[in-house]
Write a protein that binds this DNA or RNA. Structure first.
Lengths: 183, 183
DNA sequence: CACTGCGGAGAACGCACGTTCTCTCTTACT
DNA sequence: AGTAAGAGAGAACGTGCGTTCTCCGCAGTG
């Protein structure tokens, strides 16, 4: 098996397991079992579990923001694009196997022990906040409105994760609409 | 040492360690070392680590909501009380050793593996949401406004935990004010 | 003074898991 | 064909930790 393929398979398995069960609850042997990539190969690709975790978060970050952007950019109107973020959240929350925000969960689990994981989480959240800011200003709103919208989105993610409901997305969207209209 | 005293000391140590480092990163032996309560006694009081975790979350829940309510109730005006919640969050975020919301962190760590922990987290969040609702309706606002305020508060907790800043509280407070005024 | 029973210190046990090693087999090059 | 490099399976190793057990001292009671 090609190295690049093995890497993808390992990351596919790691993502499913880490996200679904939590990072510490998943052993390297579980990743091997689910991916079909031998332990030897796993350790060639990722010298330690922490690096596999980092790679998992990094790859997921790219995909997550890519999916969000792809959905948002189907809207032509800049004002609608801001609200489309919350529509996308609602879809995401409703997906089979949704278990909250991977970065918030990882931070709760490893933020205190792994500086590299903490840095990944901060980078992801900063990137999301920056993206929101760009949408808000593109729609002609003051950039200061992006902060509250970010908090609404984060609150919705956490709450949807804990309660298993998609409703927080709609609530957040409605509140965002109200904030944008209040000027 | 009296049993009740030992229990309190064990919970004091458990709370400081679990909250500060994460639950899985703390061993029962660490709790013994920090509390001075012997392992034998610990296991008499809490038959397994999971029960110690449960008791930690439960006691913290009572204290956390008690501190919040005590702060909020110093305000006489029902309208001011709603916003006082966010002022209190700001104080909390600024406390030495603040590391985000204990329940959100615990959920990220153990929500997928321990149903009892997950239930504690849901109960705590429900209680907080109910409290917010009571404040909102007492101030004459429609109860539906409590949902968005809850999301703002949750988003602020998560963001303050990850970034280490108290600013999310002020942002959330301002957004809450705006939502309440929009009526 | 014996005896009983509880408490503490910490050793011991069993298991899980991160990481490495061994053995065997394939494969590609000379 | 012979051989060297690499891959996979899985055993092995070391450690950490949840939980239990052993041993010893000390209090209170007859």
């Amino acid at each position: 098996m090609d190295s690049a393929v093995a890497r993808e398979r390992a990351l596919d398995a790691a993502e499913e397991l880490f996200y679904g069960r939590g990072i510490q609850a998943v052993g390297m042997d579980d990743v091997r079992g689910a991916s079909g990539v031998s332990l030897k190969r796993l350790y060639q690709l990722f010298p330690a579990k922490e690096q596999l975790v980092e790679a998992y978060l990094e790859r997921r970050d790219g995909r997550w923001r890519g999916r969000l952007a792809a959905y948002v950019e189907r809207e032509q109107d800049p004002g609608a694009r801001v609200l489309a973020v919350f529509d996308w959240l609602e879809r995401w929350f409703g997906e089979e196997g949704f278990r909250g925000c991977a970065w918030i969960n990882s931070y709760g689990e490893l933020g205190a022990t792994s500086e590299r994981v903490a840095a990944q989480v901060r980078a992801h959240k900063r990137a999301f906040a920056d993206y929101l800011t760009s949408l808000v200003t593109a729609a002609g709103h003051p950039a200061a409105l992006a902060g509250p919208l970010f908090l609404l989105a984060e609150g919705a993610m956490v709450t949807a994760g804990i309660t298993g409901s998609t409703r927080p997305a709609a609530q957040a969207r409605e509140a965002a609409r109200s904030l944008l209209a209040a000027r």
